[in-house]
Design a protein around this nucleic acid. Sequence first.
DNA 1: ATATATCGCTAACACACGTTAGTGCAAATT
DNA 2: AATTTGCACTAACGTGTGTTAGCGATATAT
Lengths: 196, 196
Amino acid sequence: MARIKTEKNTTRKDVIVSKAAILFREKGFKAASMRDLAESVGVEAASLYNHIKSKTELLHELCFSVANRFLQKLDEIESEPIPAIQKIEKILRFHIVEMVNNYEEVYVSDREWKHLNDPYLSNFQNQRRIYRKRLAAIIETGIKNKEIKPIDAPTAVLILLHAISGIESWHRSKQKITAAALEENMVTILVGGLTI
Amino acid sequence: MARIKTEKNTTRKDVIVSKAAILFREKGFKAASMRDLAESVGVEAASLYNHIKSKTELLHELCFSVANRFLQKLDEIESEPIPAIQKIEKILRFHIVEMVNNYEEVYVSDREWKHLNDPYLSNFQNQRRIYRKRLAAIIETGIKNKEIKPIDAPTAVLILLHAISGIESWHRSKQKITAAALEENMVTILVGGLTI
DNA sequence: ATATATCGCTAACACACGTTAGTGCAAATT
DNA sequence: AATTTGCACTAACGTGTGTTAGCGATATAT
């Protein structure tokens, strides 16, 4: 009857959520069972329910905490008085750093949100759509100001966001280049591809 | 007792496989049940087993048919006597066209291969790894020949491949630009990003 | 020291899953 | 026309799933 160990300023629920992120990432939400999760936490499956309401709650928690972080950062960057292309670069770098440092959460939020239930599902999809529109708007501005090539902005957004999710492969690769080098390479190619 | 309808040159198994692609794409392999599949084929679940061996067989079929198409095309392009950057562009265009026209299969092969079982799993992973190495080698050549910026080749590969998978968002979006426009935009940004 | 809330346990539930066995009709083959 | 094969059906199986109920021990608060 060993209790779940918590470090300072983390609840037992936090421990469960972050173990869930690891598990959902490696098996996928549907394939990861509560018994798997329990084992990785070091407890029986039923005991998890003293801390959480349901399996899906874990997914909510992960998806929305990630989404909120990105939205907040976008607010911040959008209001800075800098050229559009620099805003895009800042956002890009933020995404990369997040994907490198909070791999599991970000990955799960990106790939497993399909398994959310309404109303969370439509909510999440809306946030996502709006986020992309805001990015597209920045790119449009950059095009008007002749900083960015005259391309289709939504397509550019789609390329940027999905390219970032490729960091998954970097995480899995044997001989990794450093995170900093990865970031510079990605910025070179992607910002370079957009710039006139 | 209505039989599965087949068109000319397609077996009943083909019908099942392609319906499975649609289902696996929209729900994910684990979340899609054989009963779901049966319903979309217009038959009882048990009847499917007159044509297939198992649920996983459907996934094999999808993953490897896609992988083989890509490998074959790579063979073809690799041996052409053209500059490296043009090879990359050709491969890129092939990926885009495949993702546009064979959306379901390609998407499933890309996202759901995790659920393959050994020995198919390791087999598939190997093929993938080798494919990426061959792409990286082409990029390295391009760098040596000063056609391509001096970037980390594996990182470039990862960006290319994942950017392409972003076409998923294009498929789902309401106001789509044409497939041809999509292709040109993607090539502009990505080949532009690589070129010196 | 006593009372209370916290939390992990065992046992069990209802259900959805992939799959098999066996039956009989209809199409294909002779 | 007779026979064989193809194929969809019903019924059911075993297993793994998320989750609940209720008990007892331990940590926390009084």
